[in-house]
Design a binder for these strands. Structure first.
Lengths: 159, 159
DNA sequence: CAAATTAGTCAGAGACTCTGACCAATGTCA
DNA sequence: TGACATTGGTCAGAGTCTCTGACTAATTTG
């Protein structure tokens, strides 16, 4: 994967795997958001839980759908939602259109946390833009959005 | 900004968090590499182990350094290296410069797996380039490399 | 040499994720 | 309508990942 087969060791950044290149800023952003949330008192959920919570739509989302989007099994998603429910971030309500299903909905606490998270993301994006320049930042987002078409099985169909 | 709440709804891709945008292709690439490795018979290690193995330099790397770069504790890194050692992917040799330390070195099996992985990464990058166009792909990598300067605590600082 | 630092291990616990088995509601189709 | 497959979800159990805390041993510092 990474490593630098024949190329020299530490200095040689010429051929860094694009995957790693993507992961590094992702991880940095996640860390920042997480730290800020903890500082704001939202320290009672975990990254795994957050990755599920993030995907809850404004009108609630089914467990199975959350599982697919987060790329975990429905059992895992169920486990994580249980924790989130106990911590007061989400609630489950019956799905009026299907008596088998329930909708996982965000609670007040979740929206409050989202507000904090959104603010940090905005900060970090601003820092990145300052470093890259406005043009390059826009290009970056455009390229990533385009890439999503062929890498995200759950991308909203364009058009 | 604005919580637009529609993040999960199908139409609203206007304000997708840059973090998610980074994560989607990263995950897609990782999945592809992992599937290809499994198909080639390298099915006896896990993603977590791979993330450590990936960071082993050509001349071996200390456990502590692996831990820092992979952003896990040294205990976790040690645990993962134990598994990799049992599976025959790495070996530990004494560090000639420090008798406390040992260097984690890749074994033949690791280089063989790396060859498979590199090939898949090249394939996927080619697909991405085909989708984005050569110019945009280059810009993407440039932007990410630049971003690394402020998001990767282990980036080679000098030029 | 004493003290502080650094490399690494051991032990224990919590968190994450999976497979397999299962139940209940829904959809399909003759 | 009634058998059958599908879909939404849970329960149980196991393996993996990760952390904190406490510890040993070698190195560095003064």
């Amino acid at each position: 994967m990474v490593a630098e087969g024949g190329a020299a060791g530490r200095g040689a950044e010429r051929e860094i795997n694009t995957g790693v290149l993507l992961f590094i800023p992702y991880r940095a952003l996640e860390n920042r958001v997480f730290a800020a949330l903890a500082e704001a008192g939202f320290d009672d959920f975990t990254p795994a839980q957050a990755r599920v919570m993030q995907r809850i739509g404004p009108h609630g989302t089914r467990l199975t759908e959350l599982a697919e989007q987060a790329q975990v099994t429905k059992q895992t998603a169920g486990f994580l939602v249980d924790q989130l429910e106990k911590a007061g971030y989400v609630k489950r309500v019956p799905d009026p259109t299907d008596r088998r299903a329930r909708l996982v909905c965000g609670a007040e606490k979740a929206w409050a946390a989202k507000e904090v998270a959104d603010a940090v993301v905005a900060d970090v994006e601003a820092e990145w833009e300052a470093h890259l320049g406005k043009r390059r930042m826009t290009q970056l987002r455009q390229a990533l959005t385009l890439l999503r078409e062929i890498t995200d099985p759950y991308a909203a169909p364009r058009g």
